[in-house]
Design a protein around this nucleic acid. Structure first.
Lengths: 135, 135
DNA sequence: AATATAATTGTAATCATTACAAAGTAGTAT
DNA sequence: ATACTACTTTGTAATGATTACAATTATATT
Protein backbone atom coordinates (compact mmCIF):
# COMPACT_ATOMS: atom_id res chain seq x y z
CA UNK A 1 0.00 0.00 0.00
CA UNK A 2 1.35 3.38 -0.93
CA UNK A 3 0.47 6.79 0.44
CA UNK A 4 -2.30 7.20 -2.08
CA UNK A 5 -3.96 4.04 -0.92
CA UNK A 6 -3.65 5.10 2.69
CA UNK A 7 -5.10 8.49 1.88
CA UNK A 8 -8.04 6.87 0.19
CA UNK A 9 -8.64 4.62 3.15
CA UNK A 10 -8.92 7.64 5.39
CA UNK A 11 -11.27 9.37 2.97
CA UNK A 12 -13.47 6.30 2.73
CA UNK A 13 -13.92 6.41 6.47
CA UNK A 14 -14.54 10.16 6.55
CA UNK A 15 -11.39 10.78 8.53
CA UNK A 16 -9.87 14.04 7.37
CA UNK A 17 -6.49 13.51 5.82
CA UNK A 18 -3.53 15.07 7.58
CA UNK A 19 0.21 14.67 7.45
CA UNK A 20 0.29 13.14 10.92
CA UNK A 21 -2.49 10.66 10.26
CA UNK A 22 -0.88 9.51 7.06
CA UNK A 23 2.38 9.04 8.89
CA UNK A 24 0.82 6.94 11.63
CA UNK A 25 -1.02 4.82 9.10
CA UNK A 26 2.11 4.46 7.01
CA UNK A 27 4.03 3.43 10.11
CA UNK A 28 1.53 0.70 10.90
CA UNK A 29 1.63 -0.40 7.29
CA UNK A 30 5.41 -0.74 7.37
CA UNK A 31 5.74 -2.13 10.89
CA UNK A 32 3.66 -5.23 11.31
CA UNK A 33 5.03 -5.77 14.80
CA UNK A 34 1.90 -4.65 16.71
CA UNK A 35 3.61 -1.55 18.04
CA UNK A 36 2.65 0.38 21.15
CA UNK A 37 1.97 4.11 21.16
CA UNK A 38 5.42 4.64 22.59
CA UNK A 39 7.12 2.71 19.84
CA UNK A 40 5.23 4.65 17.21
CA UNK A 41 5.96 7.92 18.95
CA UNK A 42 9.66 7.26 19.44
CA UNK A 43 10.18 6.30 15.82
CA UNK A 44 8.07 8.96 14.18
CA UNK A 45 9.31 11.66 16.51
CA UNK A 46 12.80 11.27 15.07
CA UNK A 47 11.47 12.30 11.70
CA UNK A 48 8.75 14.72 12.79
CA UNK A 49 10.14 16.60 15.75
CA UNK A 50 6.96 18.53 16.40
CA UNK A 51 4.87 15.38 16.71
CA UNK A 52 2.91 15.02 19.92
CA UNK A 53 2.02 11.84 21.74
CA UNK A 54 -1.53 13.10 22.04
CA UNK A 55 -1.84 13.23 18.27
CA UNK A 56 -0.86 9.59 18.07
CA UNK A 57 -3.44 8.66 20.67
CA UNK A 58 -6.10 10.72 18.88
CA UNK A 59 -5.20 9.27 15.52
CA UNK A 60 -5.13 5.69 16.71
CA UNK A 61 -8.45 6.09 18.49
CA UNK A 62 -9.98 7.40 15.29
CA UNK A 63 -8.44 4.62 13.23
CA UNK A 64 -9.66 1.94 15.61
CA UNK A 65 -13.10 3.53 15.82
CA UNK A 66 -13.37 3.52 12.04
CA UNK A 67 -12.26 -0.07 11.78
CA UNK A 68 -9.14 0.69 9.76
CA UNK A 69 -6.90 -0.53 12.56
CA UNK A 70 -7.33 -3.25 15.17
CA UNK A 71 -6.67 -2.67 18.85
CA UNK A 72 -4.81 -5.55 20.49
CA UNK A 73 -5.08 -6.00 24.25
CA UNK A 74 -2.97 -9.12 24.63
CA UNK A 75 -0.67 -7.10 26.87
CA UNK A 76 -1.89 -6.41 30.37
CA UNK A 77 -0.88 -2.80 30.47
CA UNK A 78 -0.32 -1.43 27.02
CA UNK A 79 -2.46 -1.18 23.92
CA UNK A 80 -1.01 -2.38 20.65
CA UNK A 81 -2.16 -1.73 17.12
CA UNK A 82 -2.44 -3.83 13.99
CA UNK A 83 -3.25 -2.60 10.50
CA UNK A 84 -4.14 -6.14 9.48
CA UNK A 85 -7.82 -6.33 10.36
CA UNK A 86 -8.43 -9.73 8.80
CA UNK A 87 -9.17 -12.54 11.19
CA UNK A 88 -5.98 -13.98 12.59
CA UNK A 89 -4.64 -14.97 15.97
CA UNK A 90 -1.92 -13.41 18.08
CA UNK A 91 0.65 -15.34 20.05
CA UNK A 92 2.66 -13.52 22.68
CA UNK A 93 5.94 -15.04 23.78
CA UNK A 94 6.24 -14.63 27.52
CA UNK A 95 10.01 -14.61 27.27
CA UNK A 96 10.92 -12.31 24.39
CA UNK A 97 7.55 -10.52 24.44
CA UNK A 98 7.30 -10.71 20.67
CA UNK A 99 3.83 -11.06 19.23
CA UNK A 100 3.41 -13.46 16.35
CA UNK A 101 0.51 -13.65 13.92
CA UNK A 102 -0.96 -17.01 13.13
CA UNK A 103 -3.74 -18.20 10.90
CA UNK A 104 -6.85 -19.24 12.71
CA UNK A 105 -10.34 -19.87 11.48
CA UNK A 106 -12.12 -17.76 14.05
CA UNK A 107 -15.43 -18.13 12.26
CA UNK A 108 -15.29 -21.88 12.74
CA UNK A 109 -15.80 -21.37 16.45
CA UNK A 110 -19.23 -22.58 17.38
CA UNK A 111 -21.00 -20.05 19.51
CA UNK A 112 -24.65 -20.95 19.57
CA UNK A 113 -25.03 -19.12 22.84
CA UNK A 114 -24.31 -15.85 21.06
CA UNK A 115 -27.00 -16.08 18.40
CA UNK A 116 -28.76 -12.98 19.78
CA UNK A 117 -25.53 -11.06 20.21
CA UNK A 118 -24.29 -8.59 17.62
CA UNK A 119 -20.62 -9.43 17.19
CA UNK A 120 -18.36 -6.61 16.04
CA UNK A 121 -14.92 -8.04 16.66
CA UNK A 122 -13.27 -11.35 17.42
CA UNK A 123 -9.85 -11.84 18.92
CA UNK A 124 -7.82 -14.94 19.65
CA UNK A 125 -4.84 -14.54 21.95
CA UNK A 126 -2.41 -17.30 22.84
CA UNK A 127 0.51 -16.98 25.22
CA UNK A 128 3.51 -19.19 25.76
CA UNK A 129 7.08 -19.63 24.62
CA UNK A 130 8.16 -19.20 21.04
CA UNK A 131 10.63 -21.57 19.35
CA UNK A 132 13.47 -19.06 19.58
CA UNK A 133 13.11 -18.85 23.33
CA UNK A 134 12.48 -22.52 24.08
CA UNK A 135 15.97 -23.69 23.22
CA UNK B 1 -16.29 -24.63 46.57
CA UNK B 2 -15.98 -23.89 50.25
CA UNK B 3 -13.15 -22.33 52.19
CA UNK B 4 -11.49 -25.68 52.72
CA UNK B 5 -11.34 -26.33 49.00
CA UNK B 6 -9.92 -22.87 48.38
CA UNK B 7 -7.33 -23.40 51.09
CA UNK B 8 -6.29 -26.66 49.51
CA UNK B 9 -5.99 -25.04 46.12
CA UNK B 10 -3.56 -22.53 47.53
CA UNK B 11 -1.57 -25.26 49.26
CA UNK B 12 -1.39 -27.31 46.07
CA UNK B 13 0.24 -24.36 44.35
CA UNK B 14 2.61 -23.65 47.23
CA UNK B 15 1.01 -20.31 47.92
CA UNK B 16 1.01 -19.71 51.63
CA UNK B 17 -2.47 -19.51 53.04
CA UNK B 18 -3.52 -16.20 54.54
CA UNK B 19 -6.79 -14.61 55.52
CA UNK B 20 -6.53 -12.04 52.73
CA UNK B 21 -5.69 -14.58 50.04
CA UNK B 22 -8.58 -16.77 51.04
CA UNK B 23 -10.87 -13.77 50.94
CA UNK B 24 -9.77 -12.75 47.45
CA UNK B 25 -10.14 -16.30 46.20
CA UNK B 26 -13.52 -16.62 47.87
CA UNK B 27 -14.60 -13.36 46.28
CA UNK B 28 -13.67 -14.59 42.83
CA UNK B 29 -15.43 -17.84 43.53
CA UNK B 30 -18.65 -16.04 44.48
CA UNK B 31 -18.47 -13.27 41.88
CA UNK B 32 -18.19 -14.71 38.44
CA UNK B 33 -18.44 -11.26 36.89
CA UNK B 34 -14.78 -10.89 35.91
CA UNK B 35 -14.18 -8.17 38.49
CA UNK B 36 -11.46 -5.56 38.40
CA UNK B 37 -9.06 -4.92 41.28
CA UNK B 38 -11.13 -1.92 42.23
CA UNK B 39 -14.34 -3.88 42.41
CA UNK B 40 -12.69 -6.52 44.55
CA UNK B 41 -11.11 -3.89 46.76
CA UNK B 42 -14.27 -1.86 47.23
CA UNK B 43 -16.32 -4.87 48.20
CA UNK B 44 -13.81 -6.60 50.44
CA UNK B 45 -12.72 -3.37 52.06
CA UNK B 46 -16.21 -2.99 53.54
CA UNK B 47 -15.71 -6.18 55.44
CA UNK B 48 -11.97 -6.02 56.08
CA UNK B 49 -11.23 -2.38 56.80
CA UNK B 50 -7.49 -2.90 57.05
CA UNK B 51 -7.26 -4.44 53.58
CA UNK B 52 -4.83 -2.79 51.21
CA UNK B 53 -5.12 -2.48 47.44
CA UNK B 54 -1.51 -3.63 47.20
CA UNK B 55 -2.41 -6.91 48.87
CA UNK B 56 -5.05 -7.51 46.25
CA UNK B 57 -2.58 -6.82 43.47
CA UNK B 58 0.01 -9.08 45.08
CA UNK B 59 -2.50 -11.83 45.67
CA UNK B 60 -3.95 -11.70 42.18
CA UNK B 61 -0.51 -11.70 40.61
CA UNK B 62 0.37 -14.81 42.59
CA UNK B 63 -2.91 -16.49 41.71
CA UNK B 64 -2.49 -15.76 38.02
CA UNK B 65 1.14 -16.84 38.10
CA UNK B 66 0.16 -20.15 39.66
CA UNK B 67 -2.62 -20.73 37.16
CA UNK B 68 -5.39 -20.73 39.75
CA UNK B 69 -6.91 -17.60 38.25
CA UNK B 70 -7.09 -16.31 34.71
CA UNK B 71 -6.16 -12.77 33.77
CA UNK B 72 -8.55 -11.23 31.27
CA UNK B 73 -7.37 -8.33 29.14
CA UNK B 74 -10.47 -7.77 27.07
CA UNK B 75 -10.62 -4.27 28.50
CA UNK B 76 -8.16 -1.77 27.14
CA UNK B 77 -7.22 -0.27 30.45
CA UNK B 78 -8.09 -2.54 33.31
CA UNK B 79 -7.22 -6.10 34.17
CA UNK B 80 -10.03 -8.44 35.09
CA UNK B 81 -9.89 -11.79 36.82
CA UNK B 82 -11.72 -15.07 36.37
CA UNK B 83 -11.57 -18.06 38.67
CA UNK B 84 -12.92 -20.25 35.88
CA UNK B 85 -9.77 -21.37 34.09
CA UNK B 86 -11.44 -23.85 31.78
CA UNK B 87 -11.48 -22.92 28.12
CA UNK B 88 -14.31 -20.56 27.38
CA UNK B 89 -14.79 -17.34 25.48
CA UNK B 90 -15.53 -13.84 26.74
CA UNK B 91 -17.93 -11.45 25.09
CA UNK B 92 -17.83 -7.79 26.12
CA UNK B 93 -20.87 -5.66 25.42
CA UNK B 94 -19.69 -2.29 24.18
CA UNK B 95 -22.81 -0.64 25.55
CA UNK B 96 -23.36 -2.01 29.06
CA UNK B 97 -19.74 -3.17 29.45
CA UNK B 98 -20.84 -6.49 30.87
CA UNK B 99 -18.68 -9.46 30.09
CA UNK B 100 -20.45 -12.70 29.23
CA UNK B 101 -18.97 -16.17 29.19
CA UNK B 102 -19.69 -18.42 26.26
CA UNK B 103 -18.76 -21.95 25.35
CA UNK B 104 -16.16 -22.22 22.67
CA UNK B 105 -14.05 -25.11 21.56
CA UNK B 106 -10.74 -23.30 21.57
CA UNK B 107 -8.86 -26.50 20.98
CA UNK B 108 -10.66 -26.97 17.68
CA UNK B 109 -8.74 -24.02 16.28
CA UNK B 110 -6.27 -25.21 13.75
CA UNK B 111 -2.89 -23.69 14.38
CA UNK B 112 -0.38 -25.68 12.42
CA UNK B 113 1.90 -22.68 12.35
CA UNK B 114 2.31 -22.97 16.11
CA UNK B 115 3.49 -26.53 16.23
CA UNK B 116 6.87 -25.47 17.61
CA UNK B 117 5.35 -23.05 20.07
CA UNK B 118 4.73 -23.97 23.68
CA UNK B 119 1.20 -22.74 24.37
CA UNK B 120 0.39 -21.86 27.96
CA UNK B 121 -2.89 -20.03 27.62
CA UNK B 122 -5.58 -19.42 25.06
CA UNK B 123 -8.09 -16.61 25.08
CA UNK B 124 -11.01 -15.82 22.84
CA UNK B 125 -12.49 -12.34 23.12
CA UNK B 126 -15.52 -11.11 21.23
CA UNK B 127 -16.97 -7.61 21.38
CA UNK B 128 -20.29 -6.26 20.28
CA UNK B 129 -23.77 -5.56 21.59
CA UNK B 130 -25.59 -7.90 23.91
CA UNK B 131 -29.29 -8.72 23.50
CA UNK B 132 -30.30 -6.50 26.41
CA UNK B 133 -28.67 -3.49 24.79
CA UNK B 134 -29.70 -4.12 21.19
CA UNK B 135 -33.42 -3.46 21.72
C1' DA C 1 9.81 -17.97 73.63
C1' DA C 2 13.14 -16.51 70.14
C1' DT C 3 14.20 -16.27 65.53
C1' DA C 4 13.72 -16.27 60.66
C1' DT C 5 10.80 -15.80 56.85
C1' DA C 6 7.16 -14.10 54.45
C1' DA C 7 2.80 -11.23 54.02
C1' DT C 8 0.41 -6.97 54.65
C1' DT C 9 0.02 -2.23 54.68
C1' DG C 10 0.38 2.67 53.22
C1' DT C 11 2.70 5.85 50.66
C1' DA C 12 5.18 7.29 46.89
C1' DA C 13 6.54 6.55 42.26
C1' DT C 14 5.74 5.12 37.59
C1' DC C 15 3.43 4.31 33.35
C1' DA C 16 -0.42 4.65 30.06
C1' DT C 17 -4.04 7.35 28.76
C1' DT C 18 -7.26 11.23 28.64
C1' DA C 19 -8.82 16.16 29.35
C1' DC C 20 -8.33 20.52 28.02
C1' DA C 21 -7.10 24.92 26.20
C1' DA C 22 -4.20 27.46 23.08
C1' DA C 23 -2.25 27.70 18.64
C1' DG C 24 -2.14 26.23 14.03
C1' DT C 25 -4.21 24.55 9.55
C1' DA C 26 -7.37 23.89 5.88
C1' DG C 27 -11.62 24.67 3.45
C1' DT C 28 -15.48 27.65 2.22
C1' DA C 29 -18.19 31.61 1.31
C1' DT C 30 -17.95 36.23 0.41
C1' DA D 1 -7.46 37.35 -1.79
C1' DT D 2 -10.01 37.89 2.97
C1' DA D 3 -12.66 36.63 6.70
C1' DC D 4 -14.96 32.95 8.83
C1' DT D 5 -15.57 28.42 10.49
C1' DA D 6 -14.45 23.97 11.80
C1' DC D 7 -11.16 20.78 12.74
C1' DT D 8 -6.36 19.20 14.02
C1' DT D 9 -2.29 19.45 16.50
C1' DT D 10 0.33 20.42 20.38
C1' DG D 11 1.84 20.69 25.27
C1' DT D 12 0.69 20.45 29.81
C1' DA D 13 -1.93 18.94 33.45
C1' DA D 14 -4.91 15.51 35.35
C1' DT D 15 -6.48 10.86 35.95
C1' DG D 16 -6.32 5.93 36.62
C1' DA D 17 -4.00 1.56 37.00
C1' DT D 18 -0.16 -0.66 38.65
C1' DT D 19 4.29 -1.30 40.90
C1' DA D 20 8.20 -0.19 44.19
C1' DC D 21 9.52 0.05 48.58
C1' DA D 22 10.13 0.25 53.47
C1' DA D 23 7.97 -0.37 57.92
C1' DT D 24 5.02 -3.20 60.40
C1' DT D 25 2.69 -7.40 61.33
C1' DA D 26 1.84 -12.23 61.03
C1' DT D 27 3.33 -17.04 60.51
C1' DA D 28 6.21 -21.02 60.92
C1' DT D 29 10.30 -23.21 62.88
C1' DT D 30 13.65 -24.18 66.15
Amino acid sequence: MNINDLTNKLKEKNIKVSFQRIKVLEYLNNNRTHPTVDQIYNDLHLEITSLSRTTIYNTLNALVESGLVKLITIDDNTSRYDIDTRNHGHFKCQTCKNIYDFKVNIDSLSEKELKDFEINSKDVYFKGICPNCSI
